[in-house]
Simulated scan of single mutants.
Amino acid sequence: MTTGTPNRPMPGTTPGLPPETDAQTWREALDDLRRREKAATRELDAIAAQRRRLPMVRMPDYTLIGAEGPVRLADVFKGRAQLITYHHMWTDGQEWQCGGCTGFTSQFTRLEFLDNYDARFVVVTNGPIEEALAYKEKVGNTMEWYSSAQSPFGADVDAPPGGGFGVNVFLRDGDTVFRTWHTNGRGTEQLSHTFALIDLLPWGRQEEWQDSPDGWPKRPTYSGWLDSPDIARMYGGR
C-alpha cells in the first residue's frame, strides 16, 4: 500500500459531487439529519447506561508478561480500579503484524487523561514479549504492551492464539479482577477517532459496502487503510 498526496482531479471534473442548493434548503436538510444524529446520541447514552448495569465475571489470577517480566493481571492496573485491554492479533515470527490492529492502536498517543477516571488502557498480545516489544518500537507504538503467551488469558477473553482482536474491560477490587465488557469486529470503532473523522467527509470511507449515491468514489474494503509498514515509516523508531 502506498501513501502520500493523492491525485486530485482537475477543477470541474470531481466525481461524486452532491447536488448544489441554496443556503436555506441546505439548512433544512441539515436540520433533518441533525434530528437523526441527536436521536443516535441519546441511544448511545442509553446503551452506555445499560453497559454500566451489566453484571461482571470474576477472573482467575492470571499472570502476564510485561517489559520487566511476569506480572499479575491485578498489577497491570498499576493501582487503578479500571482497565481496558486491546488484544492485538499476532503471528509469531512474522515481520509485520495485523495492519488493522497496528493502525488502530497507533491512534492512542495521549492516554494520561484516563488517570482522572482511575483507569488504564494497554495492549495485550499472544505473542512472545520480546517480539511484541520489538514490534512496538518498530511501529512507534506508545502504549504499554503485555504478553499472554504463557497464559490462557487470551483464549479466556475471546482473543485466542490464531484468533482475532478484541477489547475487554475489567474492574479491580483489591487483588480480585472482574470482567465487565467485551467487543470485537466493528464494535471497536467506537474507540477510534479515525472512522469518526472519515465518516464526516462527503465521500465517507469510499469502500464498496457503503451506501453512497451513484458516482461516489468506491474502492475495495480496507484498501484505504494504512498498513503496518506505513505506520512504521511514519511513526517508528522514536
Rank of each mutant, 00 (worst) to 15 (best):
T41L: 15
T41D: 14
T41V: 15
R42D: 14
R42S: 12
R42Y: 09
R42P: 00
R42K: 14
E43D: 13
E43R: 14
E43K: 13
L44K: 09
L44G: 09
L44C: 10
D45N: 06
D45H: 03
D45G: 05
D45C: 08
A46V: 01
A46W: 00
I47S: 06
I47Y: 09
I47R: 14
A48C: 11
A48Q: 10
A49N: 12
A49V: 00
Q50C: 10
Q50D: 14
Q50V: 11
Q50T: 08
R51K: 08
R52A: 15
R52N: 14
R52I: 00
R53A: 15
R53I: 03
L54E: 13
L54P: 05
P55K: 11
P55Q: 04
M56V: 03
M56F: 09
M56Q: 14
R58H: 13
M59Y: 04
P60S: 05
P60D: 04
D61P: 05
D61G: 08
Y62I: 13
Y62M: 12
Y62V: 12
T63L: 02
T63G: 03
T63A: 07
T63V: 15
L64Q: 02
I65Q: 11
G66S: 11
G66F: 08
E68H: 15
E68L: 12
E68I: 05
G69T: 06
G69D: 06
G69F: 06
V71R: 10
V71G: 09
L73W: 02
L73I: 02
A74G: 04
V76N: 01
F77I: 03
K78F: 05
G79L: 13
G79N: 12
G79A: 13
R80A: 13
R80W: 01
R80M: 09
L83C: 07
L83N: 03
L83H: 05
I84S: 02
I84E: 01
I84A: 05
T85M: 01
Y86H: 00
H87A: 05
H87C: 02
H87I: 02
H87K: 10
H88C: 03
M89H: 10
M89I: 07
M89D: 06
W90R: 05
W90H: 13
W90K: 08
D92G: 08
D92F: 01
G93H: 07
G93D: 04
